[in-house]
Design a binder for these strands. Structure first.
Length: 569
RNA sequence: CGGGGCAUGGCUCAGUUUGGUAGAGCACCUGGCUUGGGACCAGGGGGUCGCAGGUUCGAAUCCUGCUGCUCCGACCA
């Protein structure tokens, strides 16, 4: 490809709307343009990257026994009514009606579609397992699309759905996908971790997220400093510690704490540490029932754990009226002295506390010497808090570390949730009718491209891993007027093409600086510079984008060196 | 959904407070000059100032309504 032909309008300045690095660089490198909030056109360079990622995915899916198909993006409402997700998805689903007033949606995902497809065709265990996948646009009407391709309303997803006759079969399919994903992200040249995660609303149980590590990532993960445990903080389990409390339990005492509604105010006033206080957080579920969560003052409530613990569909912060209705006093809440309407959930670590301070459910008053085991009544104890750096690993007990990342893929054991609601059954070896056991495995393709940039960039632009770079090499003749340089560049260009290298020749009549800036911005892994020395001394300059290293070779041996560099990038 | 902010040429923005008929830099076109890190000089093209009303002799500027974009929040009582 010649730059004069390439449609990649680069920008010198960063458009105001772009906040995160990948968004800025995708715009500046002439790779994407916005069509509407969260909806983008992929220009040629971006499309090449996406196709490369897709190719890697296809190869690994096929090796794992997957078969690719294509399903409708426009999906009839009836299917979604069958699983109840027409309502559950709510505002997040793009809906439309046809001329006959029939309801449809733009598929946010394809569990319904795929399950309805095979429920009529798969009748026997002999036809299983079945692994089908698609790579297509999906649609979610996000409340707040942002971060460019990271959280769009239209995005490219690969989804594979597995159908097995039993749990054992699902385990095999799951393992295949887990391994395939490990291969995919490794081949893409990304630093990532598979982490244990919460199932969320897709329903089902066991799941791993494949998280591309990047400080700008939206998900927070913990990983063990010793063993291979890694989990999303939402999921990370904390076990009851076996510490022995020697402190003697003192009698409960009411103290005045005028206008001290925060942990900090109270503990400062009392000369205590926040670890000695009990923090209350009030929620309401979808039925408007009040749920009061209690954690240690220095801890934070993990609302996913809380949601699971109380079986809530949704949770939101409780309003003041609701708190008062159950006998709570905002700012001074505790499990002591509530009316019975509230569900009280207490974190494990709170139960280990002695002589703690907490609210009294009276205005401007707290209790000292609160001993949960003695003083609390009618409550549920569970693991409720967010894990912090240094907390013990649930597997080996070593302190955990935290980092951030971008969730690029997820493997999920669905079980029979969809096959039951959609009546997708088969006959097993004993002639008994059973629901198919399903799994779903997604990769955000467009998001993976953005994640790759978040993880691989510097002050000059993108630094593509070679496997997914739009082109591997750019050839730049330095002096636009020098026909000898151009002619040498042209020869190198031809030779590289003949050697099956994806190469761009920057044949623009621009000054060297412009070409260098664009090359850095677009992030070609290797830059070949043709300058005066190439004419006079037969030397070819090769610069590695990532390391900045510069090598000089002759016209006869540059090619083999480029090829070997590409293999190692 | 709540609260900010913004909307002026392809991009980044000034001009709005105090109404007087639209500007800069970059980009683009022409010519010259330059050529190893986003040059320079000269000339040129391009904007119903988001949309719809209103006030006024006169509106980018003031008023009303709408739309779009964007940021923060929607967790520690």
């Amino acid at each position: 490809m010649r730059t004069t032909q390439l449609y990649a309008p680069t920008l010198r300045e960063t458009p105001a709307e772009a906040e995160v690095m990948s968004h800025q660089l995708l715009l500046r490198a002439g790779m994407i343009r916005k069509a509407a909030g969260g909806v983008y056109t992929y220009l040629p360079l971006a499309w090449r990257v996406l196709r490369k990622i897709e190719t890697i995915i296809r190869e690994e899916m096929d090796v794992a026994g997957g078969q690719e198909l294509s399903m409708p993006i426009i999906q009839p409402a009836e299917l979604w009514h069958e699983t109840g997700r027409w309502d559950i998805f709510g505002e997040e689903m793009f809906r439309l009606k046809d001329r006959h007033d029939r309801s449809f949606c733009l598929g946010p995902t394809h569990e319904e579609m795929i399950t309805s497809l095979i429920r009529n065709e798969v009748r026997s265990y002999r036809q299983l397992p079945l692994l089908l996948y698609q790579i297509q646009n999906k649609y979610r009407d996000e409340i707040r699309p942002r971060f460019g391709l990271m959280r769009g309303r239209e995005f490219i997803m690969k989804d594979l759905y597995s159908f097995d006759k039993d749990e054992a079969g699902l385990d095999v399919s799951y393992k295949k996908m887990y391994d395939a994903y490990t291969n995919i992200f490794t081949r893409c040249g990304l630093v990532f971790r598979p982490v244990e995660a919460d199932g969320g609303s897709i329903g089902g149980g066991f799941t791993h997220e494949f998280t591309v590590l990047a400080d700008s990532g939206e998900s927070e993960i913990v990983y063990c400093s010793k063993c291979d445990y890694a989990a999303n903080v939402e999921k990370a389990e904390l076990k009851a510690s076996v510490q022995e409390n020697i402190a003697e339990e003192l009698p409960l005492k009411l103290v005045d704490t005028p206008d001290m509604k925060t942990i900090e105010a109270v503990t400062d006033f009392m000369g205590m540490d926040s670890t000695q206080s009990i923090k209350a957080v009030a929620f309401q579920n979808e039925k408007d029932e009040v749920i009061l969560a209690f954690v240690r003052g220095d801890h934070d409530v993990n609302d996913v754990k809380l949601q699971n613990a109380v079986g809530a569909v949704t949770l939101r912060m409780a309003d003041e009226a609701a708190i008062k209705a159950v006998g709570g006093v905002p700012g001074f809440m505790s499990p002591i002295g509530l009316t019975k309407d509230a569900k009280v959930v207490v974190d494990l670590s709170v139960m280990e506390m002695t002589n703690a301070i907490g609210g009294a459910n009276q205005i401007d008053k707290h209790y000292c010497n609160m001993n949960p085991k003695r003083d609390f009544t009618d409550y549920l104890v569970t693991d409720l808090r967010l894990m912090c750096e240094g907390d013990p690993c649930p597997h080996c007990g070593a302190p955990v570390k935290m980092t951030r990342g971008i969730e690029a893929g997820q493997v999920f054991k669905l079980g029979t949730k969809y096959s039951e609601s959609l009546k997708a059954t088969f006959l097993d070896e004993n002639g008994r009718e059973k629901p198919l056991v399903m799994g779903c495995y997604g990769i955000g393709v467009s998001r993976t491209m953005a994640a790759a940039i978040e993880q691989n960039n510097d002050e000059y632009g993108i630094v593509w891993p070679a496997a997914i770079a739009p082109y591997q090499v750019v050839v730049i003749p330095v002096n636009a007027k020098n026909t000898e340089q151009f002619s040498i560049a042209e020869t190198l260009y031809q030779e590289l093409q003949a050697a099956k290298v994806e190469v761009v020749l920057d044949d623009r009549k621009e000054r060297a600086g412009v070409k260098f800036k664009d090359a850095d911005l677009i992030g070609y892994p290797i830059r070949i510079t043709v300058g005066p020395k190439s004419v006079e001394e037969d030397s070819i300059e090769i610069k590695i984008r990532r390391s900045g290293e510069v090598f000089t070779y002759g016209k006869v041996d540059y090619l083999e060196n480029v090829l070997s560099m590409l293999r190692n990038l």
